[in-house]
């Protein structure tokens, strides 16, 4: 853990409404460059809120978030947009593709917004398309492809500008087990080949076992964290044990 890409201090988030609800009660966290971390926790523990705050799509109530030593919430709108499309990549459970654009256009969207020249665009596209193996579906529309393919497209869109930090919210939540495997393998290789740091929220112990480290959130606070050793299977078992301890996770027969 030589260099830190993300540093979170005393992150708090309150939802004010008829009843004020504290989703995050002060979380400290740091993410190293090239690190792959999974966030786990029971439903309603605040893990997605945690990710959304880091993703710059939901403003925290208190605390600081530094991504590459910059606080994104101090940037103005233009700078923030630029920051999002150069430093961050997003993958969601429900893909969030633009349905009026084709697969290819969806992937190129971040570059288009940056007015990158066509040659560079094609080179980048070539690279991710090869990497993700989605050449045959490039000309299709988003509703003509399967869930697994949609997630690949979303991943392609997230990594085309080679961000330093990839943020994923339940990326496998809508996928079948085969697709889960291939998407997770993809995450692993993105992490290795592009040296992209990954922060991923999941409730699936198997998915989490692909990460280097798993942190557990309970009731809006950091509960525990475990590191992966050499053995992935053992790591999976440790995750399961922690989840059981948290309440939920493994079912008793």
């Amino acid at each position: 853990m030589t260099k830190t890409i993300l540093n979170v201090k005393q992150l708090q988030k309150e939802y004010t409404g008829e009843i004020t609800y504290k989703a995050l009660k002060g979380i400290d966290f740091h993410l190293g460059k090239k690190e792959f971390v999974a966030v786990m926790g029971p439903s309603g523990s605040g893990k997605t809120t945690f990710l959304n705050c880091i993703s710059t799509i939901d403003r925290p109530t208190n605390g600081s978030i530094l991504i590459k030593s910059k606080n994104p919430y101090e940037l103005n709108d233009d700078e923030l947009a630029k920051f999002r499309r150069t430093e961050l990549g997003f993958v969601f459970q429900d893909f969030n593709l633009v349905h009026t654009l084709t697969v290819e256009e969806n992937i190129l969207l971040p570059l288009t917004l940056d007015s990158v020249n066509e040659k560079e665009m094609n080179e980048s596209l070539e690279k991710v398309v090869n990497f993700l193996g989605i050449r045959e579906i490039l000309k299709k529309r988003t509703f003509e492809i399967s869930g697994g393919q949609k997630q690949r497209v979303a991943i392609a869109r997230a990594v085309i500008h080679e961000p330093n930090l990839l943020l994923a919210d339940e990326p496998t939540g809508n996928l079948d087990s085969k697709s889960v495997n291939s998407v997770m393998t993809l995450f692993e290789s993105i992490n290795k080949t592009f040296n992209t740091a990954i922060l991923m929220v999941t409730h699936d112990a198997y998915v989490a076992s692909f990460a280097h480290r798993v942190i557990f959130i309970k009731d809006g606070g950091l509960y525990n964290e475990i590191h992966r050793g050499k053995n992935k299977k053992q790591f999976y078992q440790e995750i399961m044990d922690t989840l059981t301890f948290l309440g939920g996770g493994q079912h008793e027969f």
Partner: peptide, 8 residues
């Protein structure tokens, strides 16, 4: 969606 892909 446009905004998360970095549109200002």
């Amino acid at each position: 969606v446009f905004m998360i892909t970095g549109a200002s």
